[in-house]
Nucleic acid binder design. Structure first.
Lengths: 214, 214
DNA sequence: ACTCATGTGTTACTTGCGGTAACCGTAGCC
DNA sequence: GGCTACGGTTACCGCAAGTAACACATGAGT
């Protein structure tokens, strides 16, 4: 078994795997994240056990599926983050890239954020963390890296950058989710509002006079 | 059927309902959000159909359960938001209140954010929005109200306040989730870092010299 | 040519959950 | 006593995840 020489069987297995993933993709796009293994197998023209041979269990399939989309989105985000432009411009471009992606394929987005919430009862009950979608975590970490490598934050910069990375990603996510549901304004307006928030406009704004009980 | 005069039966039913909710609470606290109806019924000392008589279906029970915690948490947050203090202090107090809550009872928090993700296959696949936990939405709306009624934002203030409300809540949530998983620092530090972010420190910070490809 | 390992595929099953139908006992009230 | 109304139970359905056991091909070694 030479590792360099992949046998025909191995390559055909890889192709199979890709085909299965594409079938799964179609089903998830159609049925949302609650697509059943049976349905996916049927779409691929085969039966369940094969899926299990390839992906172990449902979360395995979902992880593989999520990785593809996550990689694609992260690539686009990285491009926007790394562009040679003013910081404000880069931030706005990044926000816009993310929002455009979730606007274009809401089902996929939905799937990425809610990856079937774990197995049967999957004893992960106690460990608290890690329930937020892996996509969010990865985005947070990536952003943190970019911030830390580009912005001068003095001591404690690493800690600060990570907090901010995850915080900003969360802001983007929650605002995007709400916006997608209600569509209260154009995308560009949302982008500006969020950038304004990051630029400290909340802190700079004055108190409203005649406020309540004051 | 006089509406004002609740019969003994009605009141006893209400008591029963509360008892059941408390049992469910205990189970969710122990088993996490994937607690089964059987387990909850057993904890309450009864069997499934009674649960269904009281709450309709699982999402009904979960909704009732979530409402209690949500109300409690929102009450605490409102108190922090409405305190008569400097804005920065109020923001920090609010962040701290939220983080203290999720730190104290991570399972409950987890449950609130992941309310079983909808029914059997619950055809809600296409409508995109509304999958973010109701708690997040409510917090976002509440915060938006407070912002709009207290801060002078000029024209478009309503739109802006809502975007910011949801955005800030999302930031708090994501950062809190990450922090809960990794515990990279004390709560107070996290609070300060987030408040700094909202105060525009990212925009104010200088570029790092000797940056990449520059 | 015969076997044997390996990978692809199937049918048929088990387990466990959400949800429901149909039945049982007891308290009160006429 | 008989009647209803309600708290409760057993026993079931449908469905999805996951598995066991079996069946067909195909290339390699002898």
């Amino acid at each position: 078994m030479d590792t360099t020489q992949r046998t025909d069987q191995q390559r055909s297995a890889d192709r199979r795997r890709r085909e299965l993933l594409e079938a799964a993709d179609r089903v998830v796009l159609r049925d949302g994240p609650s697509a059943s293994m049976n349905a996916i197998a049927a779409e691929a023209g085969i039966t369940k056990p094969i899926l299990y041979r390839h992906f172990g269990d449902k979360s395995g399939l979902y992880a593989a599926l999520a990785k593809r989309h996550t990689d694609a989105l992260l690539g686009a985000l990285r491009a926007a983050l790394d562009a040679p432009a003013e910081r404000r411009e880069r931030v706005e471009a990044t926000l816009d890239t993310y929002l455009a992606a979730i606007e274009a394929r809401p089902q996929v987005y939905r799937f990425l954020m809610h990856p079937s919430e774990g197995g049967p009862q999957s004893d992960q009950g106690f460990d608290t963390g890690q329930h937020s979608a892996p996509l969010l975590r990865r985005m947070g970490e990536e952003l943190a890296e970019v911030i830390e490598e580009r912005v001068d934050l003095g001591p404690d910069s690493q800690q600060l950058a990570r907090v901010w990375g995850h915080g900003i990603v969360g802001m983007m996510h929650a605002a995007g989710d709400w916006w997608l549901g209600e569509r209260p304004c154009a995308r560009a307006e949302l982008v500006r509002a969020l950038a304004d928030l990051l630029w400290g406009r909340l802190a700079a704004a004055g108190d409203k006079l005649g406020g309540p009980a004051f």
